[in-house]
Write a protein that binds this DNA or RNA. Sequence first.
DNA 1: GCATACAGCCATCATGCGTA
DNA 2: TACGCATGATGGCTGTATGC
Length: 232
Amino acid sequence: MQQKLYKLLHEYYGNVNLHFEVEKVLKEARRSIDYNNPFKNLVITILSQNTSDANAARAYLSLERVIGELSPRKVFATRLEKIKRAIKVCGLYNSKARTIKNLAKYIVENYDSDLSRLIKMPAEQARSELLKIPGIGEKTADVFLGYVMGHDVAPIDTHIRRVSQRLGLVRSGAKYSEIQEALKHSFPRGKLLRGHELLIRLGRDFCKAKSPKCSECPVRSVCKFARESSIS
DNA sequence: GCATACAGCCATCATGCGTA
DNA sequence: TACGCATGATGGCTGTATGC
């Protein structure tokens, strides 16, 4: 199924921009986000945990309204309560505010506010550095590796976990690393990050947790779950 | 001491039900 | 049919409990 899954997804979604929700919010606010800035990228990744991309973008813009252009030093100097109020719109504001503060503290104290040294590290080393920061988990670290450092990785979120299990790529209850390994074998080299985006979109559009739309799904021909549910 | 399992965090969204 | 409300599921991570 290696190339077929990717081919089907790519044929269905083409080169569609899968971040249109964020761009809509930015357009409405007449603002932009500098994704090339590693710190800002990490902040928006943290904000996007457990919420829609649109709400993450709203929280990010709100945070910039409150404290100005984001930098590790500025965030480190900002009171936790102020950050919480600013990002309330995206939910889990208590823990996200702590994580953002921890991130800023770690960068100020260990990298003198400059992440360029981290970006030059080998992927595994950079990943383990990020995982030292409380609130940064495997998924967030892998998003950074992929989008900021340009590595070919597939961050695993619960959409991808669910879709991978239903497709039959991994067993039920598979670990994060097992799913990543399975995806390496399911997508062409150099396309893992795009594959990650496509699977998330598929999970949102068709392979929903409740009432999946198997009959309309573009990858039903290679899906174990679709085959089994059509038999029963 | 280490690995694993599980509850809790909290806003959002989907679903089902009752009412007008 | 349309609307409002209640309920439960979702999502990434932390902290605690449990077993080895």
